[in-house]
């Protein structure tokens, strides 16, 4: 059974409520319908309910698969606003959140913040920046986490790692040049993400061009500093380094280069890149030369799951990411 099959099975066992603020979009509605109809999620379409219902009929879908929320309907909106402002640590007050909720993206996230949805799934009409801003403003970042980041899950044919062909890598998409504090937070968030999604015991390696002092310089100092911060913030997690990539994932190389105890060296299942130049290039190398499938990017660091999909994504990819985000939401509960 492939990793995606396992994730789909998990989703079906406990379907989560996924809010779709770009409900009118044809690809998004199809993905919401099919994942809902097949029992993986409970789709909530957020927007102009009259138009949404017209489109459902035009496209030949069963309306009963969806819950439809009309953003112009005042009583439910007022209820969400009241519950949102009563939450601790929210950024917006009553008037401001009410105004922002005229936009379905913010409306869906407000529903998520108060617990009426488990995930908000967007990104086909909104830009990544729009989704990240709304997420930071309405859902907020996890306590102690300073940055939004992402990980990808690579399924690499022929790779014999500690999780078979699978390897989680981050950040290859969001945080361009993380400070040591941010790099530590990326590692911590990545560990929590793989634990929630895949039930892995994370073994996270901070990767750069040095293994335990074999190289020197400011680029390595940043990684070392990040490692120290991560270990101090979350001593419960196995985060180790600094390692070169081979020392992180190949037991024989680790045996030669890592001359101390390490639960991670040689058997890392999560790799953290030092910056986005490395991360973006590395993930493309894995895809191009390793012929790997890379799932994601999965946004992380938020209080609950926010998902951004590529604007050019086909329906099949959107469906996969919807189901992954639902399972992540389940893992966070």
């Amino acid at each position: 059974m492939s990793v995606l099959d396992k994730i789909y099975e998990k989703a079906k066992a406990n379907p989560q409520k996924v809010a779709f603020p770009e409900a009118e979009n044809e690809k998004m509605m199809q993905a919401a319908y099919e994942t809902g109809k097949e029992g993986y999620i409970k789709p909530i379409l957020v927007g102009d309910s009259t138009r949404i219902k017209e489109l459902i009929a035009e496209r030949g879908y069963e309306e009963s698969v969806f819950e439809i929320i009309d953003i112009a309907e005042e009583s439910y909106k007022n209820d969400v606003v009241a519950r949102y402002v009563a939450l601790p640590h929210t950024m917006l007050k009553e008037k401001a959140i009410g105004r922002r909720m005229e936009n379905p993206l913010y409306y869906a996230m407000a529903m998520q913040a108060v617990g009426d949805a488990d995930v908000t799934f967007a990104g086909i009409d909104n830009t990544t920046g729009d989704v990240l801003l709304a997420g930071q403003m309405i859902i907020g970042l996890k306590e102690g986490i300073s940055t939004v980041s992402s990980i990808g899950l690579c399924d690499i044919p022929g790779f014999e790692g500690s999780e078979g062909q699978l390897l989680a890598v981050g950040d290859s998409a969001v945080c361009t040049n993380p400070t040591p504090e941010q790099l530590a937070d990326i590692a911590i968030s990545a560990c929590d993400t793989v634990k929630g999604l895949l039930d892995w015991e994370p073994r996270c390696a901070m990767v750069c061009y040095s293994t335990l002092g074999s190289g020197q310089g400011e680029l390595i100092d940043k990684v070392k500093e990040a490692l120290a911060i991560a270990n101090e913030k979350r001593p419960d997690l196995d985060i180790d380094g600094e390692f070169q990539l081979d020392a992180a994932i190949v037991p024989a190389v680790a045996a030669k280069k890592v001359n101390r105890e390490s639960k991670v060296a040689g058997k890392a299942n999560v790799l953290i890149w030092p910056d986005l130049n490395v991360g973006n290039t590395a993930v493309k190398l894995i895809q191009q030369f390793g012929h790997a499938d890379a799932y994601g990017p999965m946004l992380q660091g938020f209080n609950s799951i926010v998902c951004d999909c590529s604007r050019g994504a086909p329906v099949s990819e959107i469906k996969g990411n919807v189901v992954i985000s639902a399972v992540r939401a389940m893992g966070q509960k």
């Binding site: 930071q136 403003m137 939004v148 941010q182």
Partner: peptide, 11 residues
């Protein structure tokens, strides 16, 4: 961090 700017815009 960027989240501080988000906080400022919200405020």
């Amino acid at each position: 961090t960027s989240v501080m700017m988000v906080g400022l815009v919200s405020e």
